[in-house]
Computed example of a mutant assay.
Amino acid sequence: MSDPRTPDPAQLRTWLHGAARQDAAAFRQLYDATSAKLFGFALRILGRRELAEEALQDGYIAIWNNAASYQSHLAAPMTWMTTIVRNKAFDLLQRTGNDAEIDADQFDARIADALRDPAATPIDSLSLSRDARALAYCMSALEGLHRQVLGLAFFHDLSHNDVAQRMALPIGTVKTWIRRSLDKLKTCLAKGERR
Rank of each mutant, 00 (worst) to 15 (best):
T14V: 03
R21Y: 09
A33V: 00
I123Q: 12
E101K: 15
T96F: 10
R195D: 10
D91Q: 09
A75N: 09
A109S: 12
A75F: 07
T6K: 03
A55V: 08
G192R: 12
A26P: 02
A153C: 10
D108N: 13
D113Y: 05
F107T: 01
Y137V: 15
S129A: 12
N98H: 03
W80V: 02
S72I: 03
S35R: 07
D58P: 04
F154Y: 06
G144L: 15
A52T: 03
A75S: 11
D113L: 03
F155S: 14
A42N: 00
R28Q: 12
P9K: 01
D162H: 10
P118I: 00
A76M: 11
Q71G: 12
W64S: 02
G192P: 11
A67Y: 02
Y70P: 00
Y60E: 06
H146C: 10
P7D: 00
D183C: 05
V174Q: 08
M167D: 08
T173M: 09
A104W: 12
F154D: 07
A68R: 11
A100S: 12
A120D: 01
T34M: 01
R166D: 08
Y70L: 02
G47C: 09
S129C: 10
R179C: 06
A120F: 01
A190F: 14
M1H: 15
W15D: 01
D108G: 07
F90P: 07
A164E: 05
L46V: 03
W177A: 05
H73T: 14
D131E: 13
R86V: 06
S159L: 04
S69Y: 12
G40K: 04
M139G: 04
L182A: 13
A36H: 12
W177I: 06
A136F: 11
K191T: 13
K186V: 05
D108W: 13
Q29V: 00
Q11H: 00
S125R: 15
I63N: 03
T173H: 13
L182D: 01
D157T: 13
L128G: 04
Q71S: 13
A55W: 05
W177N: 08
L16I: 00
D183P: 05
Q57T: 10
L12D: 00
L145T: 10
G59E: 05
P7C: 01
A67G: 04
